[in-house]
Simulated scan of single mutants.
Amino acid sequence: MDCTAGTCLFPLHRCKTIHLVRHAQGIHNVEGDKNYKAYLNPEYFDAHLTPLGWEQVDNLRKHVHSSGLINKIDLVIASPLMRTLQTAVGVFGGEGYSGDKTDVVPLMVANAGNSFHAAISSLNCPPIVAGELCREHLGVHPCDRRRSVSEYQFLFPAVDFSLASAYTSSA
């Protein structure tokens, strides 16, 4: 290894590349961008993606696949909030879930979080883990409060929730 002037590069083959992706547009973002106080509205509890948010997910998915980046991803970590889980499974998940392969568990069931979105397959995708420490805020606003882990496990059956604490911040 060449170390000069106190700077030393670690061999690239021993490095991991980290890509950070923020969630697509959530229902809380629409009104919150107009008036910050809208984030206090309990209607936005654990906010889900808007139709524009799903379009953003589809565009990022196309980019991740067309660039070949999907083949270099070993693990996806997302916060255990509806909008971030929807973004993660939409971008990095397998093609649409047909339900005819009984050995393939869906990453997301149809209409998870009132999304009107089809189920998403876990076939040929990197593992997805929900981690509590990925959250920007822990329950400051209703949109930042989340459901119980058991509710998420039902909606996102192939996501690993072992890094999400068992409590729910709905109270």
Rank of each mutant, 00 (worst) to 15 (best):
N111T: 08
G68L: 06
A130E: 07
I27K: 12
A112K: 04
F156V: 05
I18M: 12
L75I: 12
L12F: 05
F45A: 01
L123W: 03
A78H: 03
A158Q: 09
S66D: 15
P126F: 05
L69G: 00
V21S: 05
Y152D: 10
R61H: 02
D100W: 11
K101Q: 14
N29S: 07
Y152N: 12
G6I: 10
Y36F: 13
V149T: 15
L81F: 08
V89C: 06
L163S: 09
D74I: 00
I73K: 04
T87N: 08
H28A: 11
S162H: 15
R22T: 10
I18K: 09
V57C: 07
P142D: 08
R146P: 02
F10L: 14
V109W: 06
P127G: 08
F161L: 09
D46H: 02
G53P: 03
I70W: 06
I27G: 06
T17C: 02
D2T: 13
L9V: 05
H48G: 15
T7I: 15
R146L: 01
D100Y: 12
A47T: 13
T87V: 05
N59E: 14
H19L: 14
A119M: 07
N29I: 01
A166M: 04
F45G: 02
E136I: 03
L138V: 14
F154M: 11
S165I: 07
I73G: 04
L20S: 09
P80V: 02
P11L: 04
E151M: 10
L85G: 07
E136S: 07
D46M: 01
G68R: 05
L20Q: 10
A158L: 10
L12I: 13
R135P: 02
E31W: 00
G113Q: 10
L138E: 13
V149S: 07
A47F: 01
H141T: 05
C134D: 00
G96I: 11
G53W: 06
Y152P: 10
A112L: 02
T7K: 15
K16L: 14
R14G: 09
L49N: 04
A130T: 10
I70C: 01
S148V: 00
